[in-house]
Design a protein around this nucleic acid. Structure first.
Lengths: 168, 168
DNA sequence: GATTAATCGTTCGGGTACGAACAGTTTTAA
DNA sequence: TTAAAACTGTTCGTACCCGAACGATTAATC
């Protein structure tokens, strides 16, 4: 991936199609590379670590959130994972069918559903997460260690900015 | 989104579940925030700019690549966009049905398919891309201008690292 | 306390998204 | 120059993924 065309070529082509319209090429480069990177890492981890456990990316994220915060409400999982409630329902049905999680309606608030891992789910995560983390480390192996902190901060800032837009 | 739990809390919970197993929390924070950011930006742009034109994210990426590089082979679109050929086929069928692109088999190499925009497709992109770029700018509005360059470089480095892993 | 509003999870419909298997084309080897 | 290998795009099956609409529950308003 990473594109066979250089950034300069791309800018020239865009400008040629838009005349002298002002375009923010730096913003374009950031978002474009943001998705390339996210896609690349996701596909890589899905094909390697997660495939061995027959898990999709989203299924893993759900398991991870529940593993850390159980018992946890559905809405929290969706929020932490960054996907919709509709998506979550489907994924949790799959995971429940495989005996990895349980769902129970809250007795305090009949609207809420509380999610926990089963013993099987916990056992899987205890083995899987270290493998997953090793994959994460490999995906970032060529970056300078000292850059990781500010890198994470920049990414966090993007999420915060967009979420602020959303509520307006 | 952005999670209601702090990073420290999360690290403590992970460590509590794994004993003294070594985990790379910096790598974990980067990938976690990478996906949160990508998801947030994507959902934001889909709900605002792209929804007005009834386009999905992937459909937009396809149109963008074709717009810049037409005539372009299918395999290049998949590579540039970072998704599979199977995904691309479905999206292009939708776009062709809406009269935004055309597909023709190459006369030089019967395996290849050349993709172009229709006049309608070009007209749409000429209006849509500036709107999209404005959305990108808003998503990055809170970041320091001087950070954008190195931010893009870090993201590019991740993609390159993962792609290098892939071929091994 | 009854009506209204807000919240939560599910369902529904349509559009991605992938790997694997496939058919057609081109290239490479023998 | 055949046979084998490599490559491209499509189809297939399964699983996501979302917004919108929905029923159930709780909270707010009067």
């Amino acid at each position: 991936m990473a594109g066979q065309h250089t950034l300069d070529e791309t800018e020239r082509q865009v400008q040629a199609r838009l005349g002298d319209l002002k375009i923010d090429f730096e913003a374009m480069a950031v978002t474009s590379n943001l998705f390339r990177a996210a896609n690349a890492v996701r596909n890589y981890l899905e094909r390697t670590v997660l495939a061995e456990h027959d898990l999709s990316w989203t299924a893993f994220v759900v398991l991870w959130v529940v593993w850390i915060w159980e018992p946890v409400e559905s809405r929290v999982i969706a929020e932490e994972g960054g996907f919709s409630k509709a998506t979550l329902t489907g994924v949790m049905q799959t995971l429940e069918g495989r005996g990895l999680i349980t769902r129970t309606r809250s007795s305090k608030d009949g609207r809420l559903v509380l999610v926990k891992l089963t013993a099987k789910g916990r056992k899987m995560m205890k083995q899987l997460f270290p493998e997953f983390n090793k994959g994460e480390r490999l995906a970032l192996a060529d970056l300078k260690r000292s850059d990781l902190g500010s890198f994470a901060d920049l990414l966090r800032a993007v999420t915060l900015t967009v979420d602020a837009q959303k509520t307006n």
